[in-house]
Design a protein around this nucleic acid. Structure first.
Lengths: 198, 198
DNA sequence: TCGTGAGTAGACAGATCGGTTTACTCGGCC
DNA sequence: GGCCGAGTAAACCGATCTGTCTACTCACGA
């Protein structure tokens, strides 16, 4: 019986857990297309049969990788901003950049995993593509909320600017051509905030 | 006799020209790893022998693709800015965003070709990787010159901010999640310019 | 006790990967 | 006439690609 593929249960079997962790590392560090299922299975200490039994296809595994990364990032961002629930709304907007700074230090030496994945998944029908778009849309929506709470005259416009700064900082950080890219983005965000909430 | 690879003459043979044009389109639209040399040769109406006689290896062809893209972008940017040689220096900084806006409309529907390529070329020794780093360094240096001419107190810092805005706008434009991303970047750049040249 | 879900081990399929090779044609140039 | 650069045509190499398959083990739960 072929399984639904692209929908994995909230609790993974031990084998599936190892596969997903291994795939996540390899996909991010070497690229999605460049990493084959044979390599993933071998590195995870698992057979290809297990991989296909659990995930159904490579595309579905890619989507699962992106979904989990998305979830971790959202939890991290909202958690960090939540720690400053008592701060003034403008501070909370800027806190997203502090959260980003810590995140890229820990998890993003090679740039945004979603932007990188998007470069390799041009097909709009690819299951991973929808995860990517969802991630970006969510971020914009979240920043828009924070912007509105901070009294932005045009929350949508400010959110656009903040997303732009987030993405630019992440990408630049990955290329290593500008240091403290996230700090620069935070500075620009503070200025945009001033302008946008006058 | 193995040829030097990665150094092609300034004038290409007709076959090499077709190969490079075809490869450029395929690499950008489908990704580098996903496009094989067989496909490139077939689409270019050329045999694989010709491809290897002219370019030596796929890696060298990738580097040639990136070099030519780099050259086109530099020519476009400096050309557009040059058209406003009589404008005030601050206007010239902002003109780089107008040049970028026209560029992404014409050539960048899928985001920055260099950022996308960097996602697929993690190996620092890859010949294409050096082209990418050179491109970003050049852009930062060019913006730094313009920033200095505009009277920036810290031209290096302002250049970092401008590069960040350029990259963020390009990436966001490619993802299609924010419209007028380049216009937003231009607004932010104008504000940064005000702040940085007080 | 019996069935089931999760797993190993490993062969197999057909296609494609980057890259090499041999044999040949054609046009220009000295 | 003779050489050479540029090209075609097509076979070939070993490796790897995604995906399927059979056969078997093991632990657990009804």
């Amino acid at each position: 019986m072929t399984q639904e593929a692209a929908r994995e249960p909230e609790t993974l079997t031990p084998g599936a857990r190892k596969i997903l962790d291994t795939a996540a590392g390899l996909f991010y560090e070497r690229g999605i297309t460049a990493v084959g299922v044979d390599l993933i299975a071998r590195e995870a200490g698992v057979t290809k049969k297990t991989l296909y039994d659990r995930f159904g296809s490579k595309d579905a595994l890619v989507a699962a990788y992106l979904r989990e990364r998305d979830e971790r990032w959202r939890d991290w961002l909202t958690g960090q901003v939540g720690l400053r629930g008592d701060a003034d709304p403008g501070e909370r907007v800027l806190a997203t950049f502090d959260a980003l700074a810590a995140w890229v230090r820990r998890e993003n030496p090679r740039g945004c995993g979603f932007v990188n994945a998007a470069a390799e998944l041009p097909d709009p029908g690819h299951p991973g593509r929808q995860v990517i778009m969802g991630q970006k849309r969510w971020l914009r929506g979240y920043l828009r909320e924070l912007a509105a709470a901070a009294g932005a005259r045009e929350p949508g416009r400010l959110a656009d600017e903040l997303v732009l700064l987030h993405e630019g900082a992440t990408v630049l950080n990955g290329l290593g051509i500008v240091d403290d890219a996230v700090a620069r983005a935070r500075d620009l965000a503070a200025a945009a905030l001033d302008r946008g909430t006058g």
